[in-house]
């Protein structure tokens, strides 16, 4: 007997393409709200590639969560609908399907080294428009903003030059044009 017949559940049948999406979620900034959002993703087996959260409207106590996720179109639709029905969620906007959007990340990159390595690190930082925000005789901390792939290349270039550690914000995103979410 094949496995499909011995299980209690129907077999998986979907073979749709997996896509990456950036979702902006406006939520009440109340205790546990992030746990609700993350719990939804883990509980239902959705992916989180990047997640950022901060209060954006202080008077109304609203936070904006930016989530980069992956899934088939049907799963993405589920994710949006499931998010939308959480009680503290006000709005869910799909920035990938909703027209052109800007996506940026900020990273702090610590590099340790001397001599030529140190000079090379500074030169590359200049080329990438990374700022020095901390320096000692043997180290720099660079601040760099940009699209994720730009940060990725910068970090990769720093690796042989004495990369110590990286701290990244994850992606924040906003739609282009005059309209808000």
């Amino acid at each position: 007997m094949n496995t499909a017949a011995t299980t209690h559940y129907p077999a998986m049948t979907t073979s749709q393409q997996v896509e990456s999406r950036t979702l902006c979620v406006l939520v009440d900034n109340e205790p546990g709200v992030l746990a609700r959002v993350i719990g939804l993703f883990s509980g239902r087996g959705y992916n989180i590639d990047s997640l950022t959260v901060s209060e954006t409207e202080h008077e109304e106590h609203l936070s904006r969560i930016t989530i980069v996720t992956r899934g088939t179109p049907m799963v993405i639709e589920q994710i949006k609908n499931q998010l939308d029905r959480l009680v503290p969620v006000h709005r869910v906007v799909d920035l990938t399907s909703g027209g052109p959007a800007l996506q940026r990340e900020l990273a702090m990159v610590k590099v340790r080294g001397k001599g030529e390595h140190r000079m090379e690190a500074l030169r590359l930082a200049d080329a990438f428009r990374a700022r020095v925000i901390d320096a000692t005789n043997e180290s720099f901390v660079f601040e760099i903003t940009g699209a994720s792939d730009k940060i990725e290349s910068f970090v990769n270039l720093m690796r042989p030059l004495g990369l110590v550690e990286v701290s990244r914000t994850g992606i924040v995103a906003i739609g282009r044009g005059p309209e808000g979410m």
Binding site: M74, Q78, N81, D84, R85
Partner: peptide, 11 residues
């Protein structure tokens, strides 16, 4: 009444 029930299993 629940939008998340729609297109969850069957399109």
């Amino acid at each position: 009444i629940d939008p998340s029930s729609i297109n969850k299993n069957v399109k």
